[in-house]
Write a protein that binds this DNA or RNA. Structure first.
Lengths: 247, 247
DNA sequence: TTCTTTATGGTCACTCTGACTATAAAGAAG
DNA sequence: CTTCTTTATAGTCAGAGTGACCATAAAGAA
């Protein structure tokens, strides 16, 4: 803002509605899933859309996003605080909402595999979708979703937040599955292991010799998320290109 | 936005003002400079601030940013089109502007060394400042400026856009100076050279054997910006940490 | 000339990575 | 109770990339 037009008459500007849109991701059954809600009214009635809503008069966009996240997932605000929430970018095309001028701040949230959303309020029809096969969404949400997917893919390269998709204790195999799912590639298991374990603070072994059962083969050691947030040097995706699309 | 509160009464929401703020960077005399404007009115009268202004009813935030950029630099819109403009993030603290609710979309612009700004309109008091020694700025612009600096520092690692700070033709020494200035470190000249030249599409040699004079030593070959946008593998900063601050 | 400065070319050891092999420990199949 | 299959884990090895150097070239300055 800053250099406002002289005078600063509150009527000198056209009022905008400001909203937040959330791309809530989780990894479930080796597929990237995103939380969508079905629209019950025009425009785009019956279409699926990213959850979101208006920013209230006395809250910031991030507060609004976390409030919406709690509402849509049906979890308490406290438990939602631990989820990774990241501002993506703001979408402001004048015609992105046919009703009026709406500027939307998009966020990406990374959550572990949760029970089916028991939405209160708006989220009556909230549901997890395979992020790769969402039909055409309402508004410009296809674009937002694609941008969000790109962003978290890039974030996995340089940060440790793949653990945000995992439960409190996880195996390295589960962590690797996060990478493979988000990137859509297969990684070499010993190499992935070496990279994670030699990065200080990425994960920390759970003290005792507890091991996870359930699957077929040898039980795996359990780890917790470490304290590091950045990954140096990065864990680059195979195959040349940096992102899917260069925005 | 999507799931609007039922009914969608245009009065159901509090109107927000939406603005853009620009952190316009250039490298001048081996220092990172940022374009600031002096505020002529309350609040923060007499303080320096990032240039910016309201998003108009029929333009997107990016269009508003590029319009402001042209106004503040005094250049034509056409020439401003070649500048790298990148959305940073949106600042939405309810109290960031004491007058009213203002949500601001921040952009970073990277421009080559320009003549002193001949601002038209708002930019009557526009001036380049050493980005490291700006006094306290108006509003939350200190934070925005710091975020912007962090971001472009990180961008130099993974992208080729350091050339955005250079004129059309430049020497590798000048390109290296961009990195050293933004990062605040010294780089080894032969190693930097090797990295740039072995990255396909980063720079392309100017055909003939033209060389730049002016300085002391051996004349340097001239290059143009290449077509590549991403840098693979990245050119990581020396000294552990990825960014100055982990936002 | 000689010195200083900058550009450029090259070496070498070290790190990191990708590809790969081998072993261990579980359940499943016979 | 073997044997097979599956997954976890340990280790090897060559090549790419990088940081730290040293050497030479070409200009102006002394």
């Amino acid at each position: 803002m800053s250099t406002a037009p002289e005078g600063y008459d509150p009527h000198a500007f056209v009022p905008f509605a400001v909203t937040v849109d959330l791309a809530v991701f989780t990894v479930r059954e080796a597929r990237l899933h995103v939380l969508l809600v079905e629209r019950g009214e025009a425009p785009y009635k019956g279409r699926w859309a990213l959850p979101g809503g208006f920013v209230l008069p006395r809250e910031s966009a991030e507060e609004a996003a976390r409030r919406e996240l709690a509402e849509e997932t049906g979890l308490t605000k406290k438990s939602v605080c631990s989820f990774h929430l990241e501002q993506l970018r703001t979408y402001s095309d004048p015609d992105r909402d046919p009703r009026m001028r709406v500027v939307s701040v998009a966020y990406a949230a990374l959550v572990p595999d949760l029970p089916e959303p028991r939405g209160g309020g708006d989220a009556a029809h909230a549901q997890w979708w395979d992020a790769a096969s969402t039909g055409p969404l309402a508004f410009d949400h296809d674009r937002i979703l694609a941008d969000a997917h790109d962003r978290i893919g890039a974030r996995l390269e340089y940060s440790c937040l793949a653990t945000a998709f995992c439960p409190a204790e996880f195996t390295l195999g589960e962590l690797q599955e996060v990478y493979e799912t988000v990137w859509g590639v297969e990684l070499d298991r010993p190499n992935f292991r070496r990279k994670v374990l030699t990065t200080p603070g990425f994960v920390q072994a759970v003290d005792g010799p507890p091991r996870r059962t359930g699957g077929r083969g040898k039980p795996a050691a359990l780890y917790r998320a470490g304290t590091a947030t950045a990954l140096h040097p990065p864990l680059l995706r195979p195959e040349g290109r940096p992102e899917g699309r260069t925005s």
